[in-house]
Computed example of a mutant assay.
Amino acid sequence: MNGDNEVWVNSVNSKNIFSLMQWMQNYNVHLVQINGQRKYGGPPPGWVGGIPPYGSEIFIGNLPQEIYEDKLIPLFQSVGKLYEFRLMMTFSGLNRGFAYARYPTKHLADLAISHLSGHEIQCSYKIVVSRSTEKCELALDGIPSILHKEALATILNGLTAGVDTVSLYASATSDLKNVAIVKYRSHIEAAMAKKTICKGPQLLYGCPFTLDWLQPPMRQKLQSGTLPQPHSFLPQMRSDKPKQDKITLSGVQCLQLLCDQRNLGQPVYQIKLLSLGSCGWLRFWYLVVIPKHRVPFTGYSWMLADSLIPTDQYEQAKEMVAFWLLTELGYFVD
């Protein structure tokens, strides 16, 4: 920001800015401005306990643009202790006309809505207070069918905090893959989880996946119960046998069965565990030789392995590689 702009920004609403600074100094209040918003708390000083539950955040609208936290925070603290207060800001130093406040409990949020909605904070300005529409659900699309709900929940709990529920449905965009809808206890935990997962490679069991907030069309299908059931990992040979004859085996077992039936010989695995990256992702190299197959299989991939001992890391990598080879060699994954 150049000097002329600084003078212009500091000259806007200077009286109220001075009042805000005095209030912050007198009450030892610390505000942090990030990404177009100014935040108090989250948690506030002396906070004991975890992040407040879903439903504890409120939306505050129809604010006069020249009003600041020295007027707003005491007003909303009159209902009860605040966990967090976020005022949306313009580049010029005025507020954008709305804010968010989070209380320790849903009950206090309800009280704030009933007591303060319609409050005349300034002449001709009656504020609107309502429940905040918090994003707490993520959609992970492209999940391999070998990964069942409990295993995915274990992975996510090791990688992120605040997982509430994990549900699997058939993906509409990837054949024989699933989409996972993961609900977190709060928007903050969901946002942190999204950021953490995006830091690592978007691979699970060697399969790429996409990550986004749960979008309205899928939310509507979820609420109406019309999302299709997930695919399950049930390898089978190309045959006309009825489905009840299928036997669920591990990837390594299925690959050995395929090689026996095709008289290809026993697969020989070489796997080298390489560097452990951020967020617990382990890179590894693999080479698999099937004696009577024309070429060996080799490459690099990633797996989430920070909570596994080296022996288990090796076995999981081996299982992942076998699963890929099943697809390459013509197994069905139903």
Rank of each mutant, 00 (worst) to 15 (best):
C207T: 00
P235D: 05
M89K: 07
G330H: 06
E84Y: 12
K318R: 07
N28K: 15
F233L: 09
L87D: 00
D164A: 10
I247P: 03
K194A: 02
L152T: 11
G158T: 02
P44L: 05
G225C: 09
G42R: 09
L140H: 08
G330T: 13
N13P: 03
K199P: 00
F233P: 08
V295W: 13
G330I: 01
Q266T: 15
Y331F: 14
P44D: 12
V128Y: 10
D141R: 07
Y68M: 15
L108D: 12
T165Q: 01
T160R: 00
L140E: 06
E6V: 15
W281G: 01
N95S: 14
D4V: 15
I17H: 15
A139R: 02
Y100M: 07
Y286W: 09
S114F: 08
P296F: 03
D141P: 06
T210W: 06
P53S: 07
N26D: 05
R262T: 04
G280I: 00
A191W: 05
G49S: 09
W324Y: 05
I121F: 07
S117Y: 09
L304I: 10
Q215R: 13
S11D: 10
Q223H: 06
L264P: 09
N178M: 08
R294C: 15
S232T: 07
L258C: 12
M21P: 12
